[in-house]
Amino acid sequence: MKATGIVVEYNPFHNGHLHHARQAKEVSGADAVIAVMSGQFLQRGEPAFADKWARTQMALANGIDLVFELPYVYATAQASDFAKGAIALLDAAGCESFCFGSEQGSIDPFHASYSLLREHRAAYEASIHEAVQTGISYPKALNKAYMELTGSESGFADLTQPNNILGFHYVEAAEKRGSAMKPLTIQRISAGYHDPVDRNSSIASATGIRKAFFEEGSIEEVSAFLPAPSLGVLRAFHAEYGAFGSWERFYPLLRYSILREKPKNLSRFSEVTEGIEHLIYEAAKKETEFDGFIRRIKSKRFTRTRLQRMLTHIYTGFTWEQLRSFEEPSYLRLLGMSETGKNYLNQKKKNIALPLISRAADLADPMGEVDIHASFMYGLGMGSGDMKKEFTTPPCYFG
């Protein structure tokens, strides 16, 4: 059996994701689609809209064959490390290819951009350092340095676009590890990453869907953008918890997590740097709502995404020391499988390059302990009294 890999968050699984999954299978000629999916906290530094079990159910009900969890260490990291962890897991799972959605829609520009940056790495990094010193954000410094290299030449990936940026890092990660996986991309259709929902379309971004839900207060208001199985899973999740995950819901506990520390102690948490801990502490003292809090600390230097990742690590207690202790993913955590996925594992299990874990009780290493703790903290933020869910929930099965 052949498998193609995709990297996802499914926050939540919408019609655009369904298109991606189907196209990935078609363009790769694969028998199975393997998804590496973020767990309870996401790359933009946010609690997941629904927990990893609900999102796994949505994935399997919509045609995904295997879902593996991207460990917290990578799921909440900047793009290059996020991609490094995800590609390592897809490689270990035996995928022959990986496929990502992009604004570019063609794979050649990504190869061209990778070759360009590899050839001019020293000049590129020097330009980034120089730009950061002027006070602009790191993402803007990256883009400035990249534009200086590419100039007006065509044939390179447009790295101002969010999905192109992630796609570039997937290609880069695969190249650096010498992976035999073939990179593929499909055109992202209709909605852009940050676009609000368009009521005349059946495609909307996950960001737009979440925004519309929180404004309207009803999952039915965004039902047109979701496959029927996703809608059913989200209704069940909301019935269980009475809400969906957001920083607004988690903020009282985040605020406590900040204020229980002295400002200098906040700097020990991952990504907290450059003295921002003092501003975070003072803002938490003054602001009773998350929106006011994040507006008070956001600046040109510190983007909302960068700040939210810091806040995620403060909330979960994830430190610089822990971050620096991890080099590579150490296991494949199985969250769910279809019948096809089960057959794939039975056929390929001797060739899977990492330990295959199906129970939290078997996550007996520091990276796994971080994942388990993150799940506890997510459940706490959602108001769940069941702190055993991580241990009592078996992999989802969709036959």
Rank of each mutant, 00 (worst) to 15 (best):
E221F: 12
A224M: 09
P229H: 04
W247M: 04
E221M: 13
G232V: 11
E240I: 04
S230Y: 00
Y251T: 04
S223A: 15
Y241S: 10
E240S: 13
R249H: 13
P229E: 01
E248Y: 13
L231K: 12
R235T: 13
P229I: 10
S218T: 14
P252L: 02
L226H: 03
A239K: 13
I219S: 01
A243D: 11
F244P: 05
S246L: 08
L226Y: 01
F237Q: 12
A228T: 15
F244T: 06
L231Y: 11
R235I: 09
E240G: 11
E220H: 11
I219A: 02
F250S: 04
S223Q: 13
L226W: 00
W247K: 10
W247I: 02
F244G: 04
L234M: 07
V233D: 01
A239T: 14
L253C: 07
A224S: 14
Y251A: 00
S230R: 01
F244R: 05
L231P: 01
E240C: 11
S246H: 09
S230H: 00
P227A: 07
F225M: 05
V222C: 01
G232I: 10
P252D: 00
P229M: 05
F237W: 10
G242D: 00
F237C: 13
A243I: 08
L226D: 01
V233F: 01
A239D: 14
F244W: 06
F244N: 06
E240M: 11
V233W: 02
L253V: 08
A236W: 09
S230N: 04
P227E: 04
E248M: 14
A224K: 08
F225Y: 14
L253H: 09
A236G: 11
S230Q: 03
R235W: 03
